[in-house]
């Protein structure tokens, strides 16, 4: 089905991103092959979320090239599903769990965006696959943190994408949800999907992921976990050399914004 079977699922070259005048990502490059479960790790403010948002076109890069299966975001957009951070939305919004999941079908709806029976069935199926079928009609503020996260996953599942970009899906969820999410990720991987997951807990990287991207404004390392995720690289990501980068970034901000 894939005419570019040999090209990488996600390919990034010379990617730099600034917020205002502050560098957030410097000259990032990597190629992620198809059907890999990839963790993105790095300290706070290392640009992990920014990397996802840049891949998705929400943040305009200063320079660099991004390709999915050898195509631009514009052409490959419908093959990518995004799972935002749970804290990024207002959970008091007047909407039910089912309606949130149904949003995953948005691209498949016609020009008037009328929801058909088939869309409802698909959404119900997605809710079942995250174990949330009993909560379809709940207002979303009545769900626990773990349930809210599962809802976001169900919505992404409904998109039936080839690449999944997830921003901290394990943040603030219970053990049961964490296990359920991991189970789901493994299943997606065996179906040939590629997953890029921003992750916080270094202790679980070995168990959860088969590839890793280590970021601290610069790219520190990327590749299979057993090859690159070693004490040396972790030190370079999180240790004193990481602190030096922060200091440099602060200086750059001062100079380019004219503050001092």
């Amino acid at each position: 089905m894939d005419e570019n079977a040999d090209s990488a699922a996600v390919s990034v070259e010379g990617l730099s991103v600034n917020y205002d005048k502050t560098p957030v990502l410097w000259d990032i490059h990597f190629d992620i092959p198809k059907a890999k479960l990839v963790g993105i790790v790095g300290p706070n403010g290392a640009g992990k979320s920014t990397l996802l948002k840049t891949l998705l076109g929400m943040v305009q890069p200063l320079s660099g090239r991004i390709e999915f299966f050898g195509e631009t975001l514009k052409r490959a957009g419908q093959r990518i599903a995004y799972v935002p951070q749970r804290s990024s939305v207002d959970w008091d919004f007047p909407i039910t769990a089912f309606e949130v999941v149904l949003m995953g079908r948005y691209r498949k709806l016609g020009p008037l965006k009328w929801v058909r029976r088939a869309d409802r069935e698909a959404a119900t199926h997605a809710l079942v696959s995250v174990g949330m079928e009993g909560f379809a009609d709940r207002q979303i503020s009545q769900l626990s943190g773990g349930q809210q996260q599962r809802l976001f996953l169900a919505r992404a599942l409904l998109q039936d994408a080839d690449i999944y970009l997830m921003d901290e899906p394990f943040a603030g969820v219970d053990m049961a949800t964490e296990k359920a999410i991991i189970g789901l990720m493994d299943r997606l991987k065996t179906q040939g999907k590629t997953l890029l997951v921003v992750h916080h807990d270094l202790g679980t990287v070995h168990n959860y992921f088969d590839w890793v991207i280590m970021l601290n404004t610069c790219l520190i390392a990327y590749g299979p976990v057993e090859e690159v995720f070693h004490a040396d690289a972790i030190m370079r990501t999180y240790g004193a050399s990481g602190a030096l980068i922060e200091e440099a970034v602060k200086l750059v901000r001062g100079k380019t914004s004219g503050a001092s």
């Binding site: 935002p84 939305v89 949130v100 948005y106 691209r107 965006k113 998109q159």
Partner: peptide, 20 residues
């Protein structure tokens, strides 16, 4: 006419962009 995109954008702006 624009009910669905408006609903999506009001709830989750970033996501709305990713689904077009």
């Amino acid at each position: 006419l624009k009910y669905y995109p408006i609903k999506l954008t009001l709830f989750d702006r970033d996501y709305a962009k990713t689904v077009g």
